[in-house]
């Protein structure tokens, strides 16, 4: 996983609440058995005027000129400014895969759906929760060329005018993201604890362990 330390990048506004994971990456693209290559289909139904299908050459498709990410001034955006409950709906990790593959490294919103929020951290994508009025303020300020600097170590965002905004983040998640650590390797370092738990639990709830020896 790509580590996240400091990012200075162009911000793009997606001014809708409850952006669901079906909108972020529609279901037909979930048929892929790969982890990469979802970027061209990010927000497919909003981004293009035709119906998207897997393995399409997106450079040949008619784009929706009104969709914000298609505007020339937001090309290369790495920070997405979003509204309430971003990422609601399904658990598909294809949603953060698509956002990351497109080029986003951070999303700022007043709230995120829980599963999506969790999935972001597994993919080097930083979801930042800010107070609703702070986000509303950013939406007002955001004009083309608006760049934010995000420092994960210091847990602060610096606006173009130099004003800083602090943000909260779970320390364990921060540590893993800063170092790009593999969660599974960390957990397997505790294998003895898992085995001890299983032994104790098998005494409390033997019916759950009846088939494990097979």
């Amino acid at each position: 996983m790509q580590a996240f330390t400091v990012l200075t990048g162009l911000a793009a506004p997606l001014d809708r609440a409850n952006v669901d994971t079906d909108a972020i990456i529609p279901k037909q693209f979930l048929k892929s058995i790969k982890r990469a290559g979802f970027g061209p289909y990010l927000f497919d139904e909003w981004r293009y005027l035709d119906r998207g299908e897997p393995d399409m050459d997106c450079s040949q498709r008619p784009i929706n000129p009104d969709f914000v990410l298609n505007k020339p001034e937001y090309q290369g955006a790495q920070i997405l400014l979003a509204r309430e409950n971003f990422g609601c709906g399904s658990s598909r990790e294809h949603a953060p895969w698509a956002l990351e593959d497109y080029g986003f490294r951070a999303i700022i919103a007043p709230s995120f759906a829980d599963i999506f929020y969790n999935n972001c951290f597994k993919n080097g994508l930083l979801p930042i929760v800010l107070a609703a009025d702070t986000v509303a303020g950013l939406f007002k300020e955001l004009t083309p060329g608006y760049r934010l600097s995000i420092d994960l170590t210091a847990q602060k965002i610096t606006k173009p005018n130099g004003i800083e905004i602090a943000f909260e983040i779970d320390q364990a998640r921060k540590y893993r993201l800063l170092n790009g650590l593999d969660d599974i390797a960390l957990t397997l370092q505790q294998a003895d604890k898992i085995l001890a738990y299983e032994a104790a639990r098998a005494k409390r709830a033997p019916w759950l362990f009846a088939s494990d020896q097979a």
Partner: peptide, 21 residues
């Protein structure tokens, strides 16, 4: 009972555990 992403699917397969808050 709760839903998880694919990274966590791999995590549960490998360790039968999840890190949760």
């Amino acid at each position: 009972a709760f839903g998880i992403g694919t990274s966590e699917v791999e995590h549960v397969l490998a360790a039968q555990c999840l890190v949760q808050k």
